[in-house]
Write a protein that binds this DNA or RNA. Structure first.
Lengths: 231, 231
DNA sequence: GGGTGCCTTAAAGCAACCTTAAGGCGTCGT
DNA sequence: ACGACGCCTTAAGGTTGCTTTAAGGCACCC
């Protein structure tokens, strides 16, 4: 369940798996790829976890305590049709795979599988998002390279700290959408850390100072978003 | 699954497969599901075929005459990053699957596979193409985008405060129905707070001033509703 | 005409946000 | 190991502008 301090707004995955050993191994492998992974071990915790927001993809085991994986998937799809779901299950029967996919999963991987293949399939799903996390995003006078963690403005490189980059990446990834303060903080810290301060505001302030004040729009009482008019 | 109107959203698939027998069987199975299938048997025909347009998805074998499947995929992705590609191949080695997925494929199915599973995976891919757009509500001269927290009138952006947006969204969500003052206030503030003032009226007033006076209809003694039709 | 409910306006109150600055913590180089 | 440096957080004070309050006027119905 642990979340190490190593996340700078990288992509956040939700792993639902009750086998502690497997969960631990997968978390390790995924984190090595740069993903932020939060893990839960009960099916009935899926919806509360997603409520917090900030997840980009769900890895879902089927045999779960609390609520079966398929039931959890059904609930999930009633609320959120967008987020990609990859089922990881030992059930290898054809009808399991088909009902999983038709139940709203985007992929179905049968245990045992190689971590490398899982990661490749995660990549394939995440590639399809609004703004691919691995490509350079051109935004007005800015060029943002999520892979190399660099940003340049009018060709001049700008140096951003980890947290600043984390905030920026989340905003870029959901370009145009308004992200609440809570969502942004969850993305930076994970959900077990609690921030009772205005740290986020300070990071926003620094970003505006470095990247121009027109970039980030404040929606008072709601959150922040990238101003959409520059392209 | 009724057959009515089954040609309205006809999906056209491109099958790239050089084994005549398999190709024939797959075409049959896919057509039975209502897809339109065109089949080619050479890798170097993929690009010309896609040039014609109209395809929603590609089923790609790897061992192909003319041009290898992986090479064809690379060419394809240079031109078109959007169209889903499912690799169907007898190559079951881990590195094949990974390089296929990382090469831009959306799924990788190892032969032999069941037609039912292929169809389920095709469905899972095509599901993602329906209504990719946001849930922008178009209402007469107004366009309301809840995710971006923006409203525009005749294309001109209008700036709304949080409370104003809250009232408007509730009315839009129950378009046509009359919402009582209590319902609207409850939606704004929650259950435990009670407002002993005319704040709601003020917000309504501001909305009318910004969005036009014909939008919100007062039902005296009851509440408010969106006027059913605006010209 | 009187009562009731809604509209309009303006001003006070206040929460959210911005800005600045200082201290803590970890990192890196010497 | 020690010090220098940069980053993150915390805190305090200032600013903005939304929200509410309140009061008076208008419209509707009996």
């Amino acid at each position: 369940m642990c979340i190490t301090g190593f996340n700078g707004g990288m992509m956040r995955l939700l792993l639902v798996e009750d086998d502690d050993l497997l969960a631990d191994g997968l978390q390790r492998a995924l984190r090595a790829e740069g993903y932020t992974v939060d893990c839960i071990d009960r099916g009935d915790l899926v919806m509360p976890a997603l409520q917090d927001g900030g997840f980009e993809l769900v890895l879902l085991d089927l045999g779960l305590p609390g609520l079966d994986g398929m039931a959890a998937l059904k609930l999930l799809r009633q609320k959120d049709k967008q987020i990609p779901v990859i089922i990881i299950s030992a059930r290898d029967a054809l009808e399991d795979r088909i009902s999983g996919l038709d139940g709203g999963a985007d992929d179905y991987l049968v245990k045992p599988f190689s971590a490398a293949e899982l990661i490749a399939r995660v990549r394939a799903r995440l590639r399809r998002r609004e703004t691919p996390g691995t490509e350079v995003v051109q935004l007005g006078e800015l060029a943002i390279d999520p892979e190399r963690f660099t940003v340049s403005r009018n060709g001049e490189p700008v140096s951003l700290s980890r947290r600043e980059m984390g905030v920026l990446l989340q905003l870029v990834r959901h370009r145009g959408r308004v992200l609440t303060r809570d969502q942004l903080e969850q993305g930076l810290y994970g959900w077990n850390e609690d921030v009772e301060s205005n740290a986020l505001e300070v990071h926003i302030h620094h970003l505006r100072k470095k990247l121009g004040s027109g970039l980030i729009r404040t929606v008072r009482g709601v959150g922040y978003s990238l101003s959409g008019e520059m392209e």
